[in-house]
Design a protein around this nucleic acid. Structure first.
Length: 804
RNA sequence: GCGGAUAUGGCGGAAUUGGCAGACGCGCUAGAUUCAGGUUCUAGUCGGGGCAACUCGGUGAAGGUUCAAGUCCUUUUAUCCGCACCA
C-alpha cells in the first residue's frame, strides 16, 4: 500500500465526523476520562506548531483511553475575548465580533485538518452570550460573597494599551500584551479577593498530581511567609502619643537590634501628621521622584538605597523603649505587609546597606558574623537583648519575643502572602461587561441574576478613550439605567473583565455546554469532574492555572461543584523552537506553519514528528530533515500491507511484539512519546529484516500507532478487513512472560573492565552464572594465573572478577 | 540576590534507575536502483591506534565513594527558566 495522505486524511476525517465518533457519551455508568488541553486564543496568525505539540500529547492519551474502553471527553473551544483581537480591530476597522468569528473559523478548519479527536459537539466560545452569561453569574456570586471590592490604590498601568493590569499580567515590570514598561498609577479599581484563598490554593496543591516545577512555581507565587505584626508607638517632638505604626516582620527575635524604621513613601501616616512633620517638603519631593520611576527602575537599579528621614516624628522600640528615627524609602512597598518595617541593620542586608549610607547605629543581637563588614543573617547566640540573651535558637527567641509582645499588647503572630488581590477590570471594549450598577443612594448594586447576560452592546467606535475610560462609557443607552434596588437613576459599570475571566471556568462548561438553566448540570459535573489530565504551557502556571483554581474553589465553597480541586493532574509541554534554535517569532522569520507541513507531508507526519522530536517537556528546534524521516517511517508502515500474510504470531517476532506493546503502553502514560515511537521504529526495522509478518501482527502494530497516526492506521485497519473504526479497536495487551527473553547476554568484566560477553539461559543462579563465565575461554585466559580477590555476580546482567 | 532545571557524537535525543554509553531518527560516507533530480535499498558512522581479531580513551570541569558511576557525594563552570528591595 502507498501512503497517499492527500486522499486518506480527508477520507477518514469525514468518516469520524459522519459517525460522531469522538463525541463523549452521556452514559454515566461507564468509566470516564476527561482529558483537557488549554483552549486556544484565536489570533489572526492562525495555528502555531506549538499548538499541535500541546494537543498531540493529550490526543495520544485520549485515543489510548478510548481504545481501553473509557468514555472519553476531549473537548476544545476558544478563549476569544481579549486585547489582541481588539487591537487588530482598531487597526483595521473590522469589528471585533467579525475578527473573532473569522479567526475561530480559521482555527477550526486547521484543527480539523490535523485530525484531532476533539468532541466538536461541545465547543465553547467565551464571547457567546450563552457562555458569558455564566461568567457574569459566577462574578455576581463572588460579589454576593464579598469577594469583589473596589479600592483606589497604586496599580500596574500600561500606558500603551491604556489599561490596568493585574500583578500576574505585569510580571517583570512589562505589559504582558505589548511588553512596554508598566507604570504605577493611582486608580479606582475592582479587585477579586484572591488573597483570601491563598491558603486554600496552597494546601490544595498537596493532593493533586502536578509536575513538580508547576507546583513549586505556584507555591512561590503565593509566597506564604510566617512572622509577626508589631505596633511601634509614635512620638511627636520626643513626646510619646497614643498612636502607633504597625509593622510586619519575620524576625521578631531581632527586635532589640532595631535602630530605625522605614515606611513606604505613600504610607498614610505622613498625611496624618503632615502639620507636625518639619521637613514635609523634602518628603513630598521624594515621593514624587519615586512615583516617576518605572517598575524597571525601581527593581533593577537596586544598588543604591535612597530615602529621607522624617523630622518631628519618631517611634519607640517596644522591646527596649528607645526612641528611633523613621525614614521613608522606596525599598519598602505599600503593597506588602503593612508598608512599614522595623529595620535591623545588623541582621538584614537591605537595612544594613541603608544604615551604612545614612550613618545609623548598627547593634549586633546575634553572634556569629562580623557586623563591621556585613549583615549577619545566620543563627547564633542572642546578645544585647535583655531577656533573650543566651538563647541560641531562633525558634525559642521568636517564641519568647511573641509572648513579650502579647503581654504588652503590642504584637502578635501573623502570616503574609506575596500574592496580591486580582485587579479585575479592564478599560476596554472586547470583554465581558461587569454586571454592577452604581447608584447614588444604594452604592454598588449587582445586576439581578435574571437579567443576565448583561449584553455587550454592539458599537461602531470601540477604541479606548484617551482619559483611560472604557469605550462603553460613551454609550448613554448602556450607561444610564435604573438601580435594581431602589429603582432610581443609576449608572452602569463600563469596564469589562480581563481576558482570564472566561478561561477560569471553561472546563466546567464542557461538561454540559448547551445548558441554558445552569452553567452545567450537577449530574454532568458529578460524572465528569475533576479533569483527569490537563496539559498546557508553563507560561500559564502563575496566571490561568491560579485563577481557575481560585474560581473553582470558590464554586466548591458555595456548593456549586462537587470537587475542590479542578485538575487531578497537570503536565506541560516544551516549546518548539525555530530551525535556528531561537524562539519562533514573526520578526525573526523562523515560524513554521503547520498548514504547510500538512500540505507537504500530511497530518499524520506532523503529529508524529511533534511528538518524536525530543523529550515532550523540553524545548527542541524544528528540523525539516527529521520531518522527512518521520514521513519515511509512515511510508514503511504503509508498505507492511504488501508483506503481511497469514494469521497468528510469527515465531521470530512474537517476543518483539510483546515487548513493543509493553514499551508503547508504558511510555504513553509518562508522556515519553519519543521513545514509544522509537520502539515502533525498531520493531518495523525488525519486521523488514525478518521479511515477514502476519495480518494479526499488522493489526497489533496499527492499533499501537493509531493514537499517533490515526488516518494511516484507519486505512490499514480497513485494508485488513475490519469494518469498525480502528479508533475504538481494543488496545493491544501483552503477555508479561513473552516480554522476557529466555536467553540473555551477560557482560564479563575483570577489574571492572569489559572483557566480552556470553549468552546464557535467563534466570541462571549466581553459581551457575559464575561457572558459565569461567568456562568462556577468553575470560578464563584473562584471569589465568591471577589471585582472585572478589567475585561479583549479578544474575541476568554481569560477572565481574577482581584479581591481583 | 533567591529558587528551579539542564549539560551525553556533526544534530535532536536514548540508557530497565548503579551493571556492555550512544537506542531511535536526522545528517554524513561508500555502493546498488534510476536517463537525471527525487525516491528506495545495502553497508558504515564517538575519538585515537591497527589490514584485522583487537586495544586505549571517552557523558561540561576537578575531586571522591564503589568490584562497577552519564547515574550517588563534594567543589566548580556554562546555559535556560521563574521570582525579585517580600521585611
Amino acid at each position: 500500500m502507498k501512503h497517499n495522505f492527500k486522499e486518506i486524511e480527508p477520507k477518514w476525517q469525514k468518516a469520524w465526523d459522519d459517525a460522531h465518533a469522538f463525541e463523549a457519551k452521556n452514559d454515566y455508568s461507564k468509566p470516564k476520562f476527561y482529558g483537557l488541553v488549554e483552549f486556544p486564543y484565536p489570533s489572526g496568525a492562525g495555528m502555531h506548531v506549538g499548538h499541535i505539540k500541546a494537543y498531540s500529547g493529550l490526543e495520544v492519551i485520549c485515543r489510548k483511553r478510548r481504545m481501553q474502553g473509557y468514555n472519553v471527553m476531549f473537548p476544545i473551544g476558544f478563549d476569544a475575548y481579549g486585547l489582541p483581537t481588539e487591537n487588530y480591530a482598531i487597526k483595521t476597522g473590522i469589528h471585533p465580533r467579525q475578527v473573532t468569528d473569522n479567526n475561530i473559523q480559521k482555527f477550526t478548519s486547521q484543527l480539523r485538518r490535523v485530525g484531532f479527536s476533539f468532541d466538536w459537539s461541545r465547543v465553547v466560545d467565551t464571547t457567546e452570550e450563552g457562555y458569558y452569561k455564566w461568567t457574569q453569574w459566577i462574578f455576581r456570586k463572588m460579589f454576593d460573597a464579598g469577594l469583589v471590592f473596589r479600592a483606589t490604590t497604586l496599580v500596574n498601568y500600561c500606558p500603551s494599551c491604556k489599561v490596568v493590569l493585574s500583578n500576574e499580567d505585569s510580571q517583570g515590570g512589562k505589559c504582558d500584551i505589548c511588553h512596554s514598561d508598566i507604570v504605577q498609577k493611582s486608580k479606582d479599581v475592582w479587585y477579586l479577593r484572591i488573597t483570601e484563598y491563598a491558603d486554600k490554593l496552597l494546601q490544595g496543591l498537596d493532593k493533586v498530581d502536578y509536575l513538580p516545577n508547576v507546583k513549586l512555581q505556584q507555591e512561590n507565587w503565593i509566597g506564604r511567609s510566617e512572622g509577626a505584626f508589631a505596633n511601634f508607638k509614635l512620638a511627636l517632638d520626643n513626646a510619646e502619643i497614643e498612636d502607633s505604626l504597625r509593622i510586619y516582620t519575620t524576625r521578631p527575635d531581632t527586635m532589640f537590634g532595631v535602630t530605625f524604621m522605614v515606611i513606604a513613601p505613600e504610607h498614610p501616616v505622613i498625611e496624618k501628621y503632615r502639620d507636625k512633620i518639619t521637613n514635609i517638603g523634602a518628603l513630598d519631593a521624594y515621593k514624587e521622584e519615586c512615583a516617576k520611576k518605572t517598575e524597571f527602575e525601581r527593581t533593577q537599579l537596586v544598588k543604591d538605597k535612597t530615602g529621607v528621614c522624617i523630622e518631628g516624628l519618631c517611634a519607640i522600640n517596644p522591646a527596649n523603649g528607645k526612641q528611633i528615627p523613621i525614614y521613608i524609602s522606596d525599598y519598602v512597598m505599600m503593597g506588602y505587609g503593612t508598608g512599614a518595617i522595623m529595620a535591623v541593620p545588623a541582621h538584614d542586608e537591605r537595612d544594613y546597606e541603608f544604615a551604612k549610607k545614612f550613618g545609623i547605629d548598627i547593634i549586633e543581637v546575634i553572634k556569629g558574623g562580623d557586623i563591621a563588614k556585613e549583615a549577619y543573617t545566620g543563627d547564633g547566640e542572642m546578645v544585647n537583648s535583655e531577656f533573650l540573651n543566651g538563647i541560641t535558637t531562633k525558634k525559642e527567641a521568636i517564641a519568647k519575643m511573641l509572648t513579650f509582645l502579647a503581654e504588652k499588647g503590642c504584637g502578635e503572630k501573623g502570616v503574609q502572602y506575596k500574592m496580591k488581590d486580582w485587579a479585575f477590570n479592564r478599560q476596554r471594549y472586547w470583554g465581558e461587561p461587569i454586571p454592577i450598577v452604581h447608584c447614588q443612594k444604594c452604592g454598588m448594586v449587582g445586576v439581578p441574576y435574571e437579567e443576565l447576560p448583561l449584553r455587550l452592546p454592539k458599537v461602531e467606535n470601540f477604541a479606548p478613550g484617551e482619559g483611560g475610560e472604557s469605550p462603553l462609557a460613551k454609550i448613554d443607552s448602556f450607561v444610564n439605567c435604573k438601580c435594581p434596588k431602589c429603582g432610581g437613576d443609576a449608572k452602569r459599570e463600563t469596564d469589562t473583565m480581563p481576558q482570564w475571566a472566561g478561561s477560569s471556568w471553561y472546563f466546567l462548561r464542557y461538561c454540559d455546554p448547551h445548558n441554558t438553566e445552569e452553567f452545567a448540570s450537577k449530574e454532568a459535573l458529578n460524572y465528569w469532574m475533576p479533569v483527569d489530565w490537563y496539559n498546557g504551557g508553563m507560561e500559564h502556571v502563575t496566571r490561568h492555572l491560579i485563577y481557575s483554581r481560585f474560581w473553582h474553589r470558590f464554586l466548591y465553597d458555595i456548593g456549586e461543584v462537587p470537587v475542590d480541586e479542578p485538575y487531578a493532574k497537570r503536565t506541560a509541554q516544551g516549546l518548539i523552537l525555530g530551525p535556528d534554535g531561537e524562539k519562533m517569532s514573526k520578526s525573526k522569520g523562523n515560524v513554521v506553519d503547520p498548514n504547510d507541513v500538512v500540505d507537504q507531508y500530511g497530518a499524520d507526519v506532523l503529529r508524529v514528528y511533534t511528538l518524536f522530536m525530543g523529550d515532550y517537556a523540553s524545548a527542541a528546534p524544528w528540523n525539516e530533515s527529521s520531518v522527512k524521516g518521520v514521513k519515511r517511517f509512515l511510508d514503511r508502515v504503509a508498505g507492511l500491507c504488501d508483506i503481511a500474510k497469514g494469521e497468528g504470531a510469527t515465531a521470530a517476532l512474537e517476543s518483539s511484539f510483546h515487548k513493543t506493546i509493553k514499551k508503547v503502553s508504558d511510555d504513553i502514560e509518562e508522556m515519553k512519546f519519543n521513545t514509544a515511537i522509537a520502539a515502533m521504529m525498531s520493531l518495523i526495522n525488525e519486521i523488514y529484516d525478518a521479511g515477514t509478518l502476519t495480518k494479526d501482527e499488522l493489526g497489533i502494530f496499527v492499533r499501537l500507532l493509531c493514537p499517533y497516526a490515526p488516518h494511516l492506521c484507519e486505512e490499514i485497519w480497513e485494508f485488513l478487513g475490519n469494518t469498525e473504526l480502528c479508533a475504538f479497536a481494543p488496545w493491544p495487551v501483552y503477555d508479561e512472560s513473552k516480554t522476557v527473553d529466555n536467553t540473555v547476554e551477560i557482560a564479563l568484566q575483570v577489574n571492572g573492565k569489559f572483557r566480552g560477553t556470553i549468552m546464557v539461559a535467563a534466570g541462571l543462579s549466581k553459581d551457575d552464572l559464575l561457572a558459565a563465565a569461567k568456562a568462556d575461554a577468553k575470560f578464563a585466559a584473562a584471569i589465568e594465573g591471577k589471585t582472585i580477590v572478589k567475585e561479583i555476580v549479578v544474575p541476568n546482567k554481569i560477572v565481574n572478577i577482581v584479581v591481583k
